[in-house]
Measured scan of single mutants.
Amino acid sequence: MQRVNMIMAESPGLITICLLGYLLSAECTVFLDHENANKILNRPKRYNSGKLEEFVQGNLERECMEEKCSFEEAREVFENTERTTEFWKQYVDGDQCESNPCLNGGSCKDDINSYECWCPFGFEGKNCELDVTCNIKNGRCEQFCKNSADNKVVCSCTEGYRLAENQKSCEPAVPFPCGRVSVSQTSKLTRAETVFPDVDYVNSTEAETILDNITQSTQSFNDFTRVVGGEDAKPGQFPWQVVLNGKVDAFCGGSIVNEKWIVTAAHCVETGVKITVVAGEHNIEETEHTEQKRNVIRIIPHHNYNAAINKYNHDIALLELDEPLVLNSYVTPICIADKEYTNIFLKFGSGYVSGWGRVFHKGRSALVLQYLRVPLVDRATCLRSTKFTIYNNMFCAGFHEGGRDSCQGDSGGPHVTEVEGTSFLTGIISWGEECAMKGKYGIYTKVSRYVNWIKEKTKLT
Rank of each mutant, 00 (worst) to 15 (best):
R3Q: 08
V4M: 13
V4Q: 09
M8V: 07
M8N: 12
G13H: 07
L14S: 04
L14D: 02
L19S: 03
G21P: 05
Y22L: 07
L23C: 06
S25T: 11
S25I: 14
A26V: 10
C28N: 03
A37D: 01
K39E: 14
L41P: 15
K45L: 14
S49L: 09
G50R: 15
K51S: 09
K51A: 12
E54Y: 08
L60Y: 10
E67Q: 03
E67S: 04
F71P: 12
E76H: 15
Q90C: 04
Y91E: 15
V92I: 11
D93W: 04
D95S: 07
D95G: 06
Q96K: 07
C97D: 01
S99W: 04
L103H: 11
L103S: 07
K109T: 09
N113I: 04
E116A: 10
C119I: 00
P120D: 10
F123R: 04
E124H: 06
C134E: 02
N135M: 06
I136Y: 15
N138L: 03
R140C: 04
R140K: 08
C141D: 00
Q143Y: 02
K146D: 12
S148V: 07
D150L: 08
V153M: 06
C155R: 02
G160N: 06
G160R: 02
A164H: 11
E165Q: 11
V174G: 06
R180W: 04
T186D: 12
L189H: 13
A192T: 13
E193D: 13
D198H: 12
V199N: 12
D200A: 11
T209W: 08
S220C: 05
R226Q: 13
E231V: 11
V243F: 09
V248A: 07
N258Y: 01
T264A: 05
E270D: 13
V277Q: 01
V278F: 04
E286H: 10
H289I: 10
R294M: 02
R294C: 00
V296T: 03
I299C: 05
P301C: 08
H303V: 06
N304A: 09
N304F: 10
N306M: 06
D315Q: 02
I316P: 00
L321E: 00
C335N: 01
I336E: 00
D338A: 07
E340Q: 14
T342V: 03
N343D: 15
I344K: 15
K347G: 14
G349C: 02
W356H: 08
V359N: 13
L367R: 14
L369Q: 06
Y371V: 15
R373W: 04
R373Q: 14
R379C: 07
T381N: 15
R384P: 07
S385M: 10
F388I: 14
I390W: 08
F395N: 01
C396L: 00
G402D: 08
G403W: 14
D405C: 10
D405E: 14
E420P: 01
S423R: 11
F424C: 01
I429N: 15
I429W: 10
S430K: 02
G432R: 14
A436V: 05
A436T: 14
G442C: 13
I443T: 07
I443W: 13
N452G: 14
N452D: 15
K455C: 04
T458W: 01
K459P: 04
